[in-house]
């Protein structure tokens, strides 16, 4: 028989380690913002770090790691697909910029 008891999650020591790890990622993000890197590299790096933080929060803080895998496969791929599909708009954004009259 299946039960709906909460799955056994990690203890506070694990949570504190994850919390410290996330603080470290925030510190890296802030340091990157002051590093002399190009805009494209900075946006890419910040997005990668933000998605890494989101994945950690989902797995440990929101307990997705300790739920049945079907919950993950039902919720997350569809959401990521929606985000992926939104990327279709960038070409139009670029076109808008190209259509402007040059600044005198």
């Amino acid at each position: 028989m299946t039960t709906m008891e909460p799955s056994a999650g990690p203890n506070m020591r694990v949570y504190i380690s994850v919390w410290l790890g996330m603080l470290l990622i925030v510190a890296i993000e802030a340091a990157l913002a002051y590093a002399h890197v190009s805009g494209g590299v900075l946006v890419t790096a910040l997005l990668v770090l933000a998605f890494l933080e989101a994945a950690i929060a989902l797995r440990y803080f929101m307990h997705l790691k300790y739920e049945v895998p079907m919950l993950f496969w039902t919720l997350i791929p569809g959401l990521l697909l929606a985000f992926f599909m939104m990327n279709q708009f960038w070409a139009d954004s670029s076109r808008l910029n190209a259509l402007r009259f040059p600044v005198p």
């Binding site: 925030v26 993000e29 913002a33 900075l42 997005l47 933000a50 989101a54 929060a57 803080f61």
Partner: peptide, 20 residues
């Protein structure tokens, strides 16, 4: 509450750090 935290992980770098 964790979701609210998760959203901020995107808002802070994109709206603050990219607007220095």
């Amino acid at each position: 509450w964790h979701f609210v935290d998760l959203v901020w992980m995107f808002v802070f770098p994109l709206l603050y750090l990219l607007n220095l």
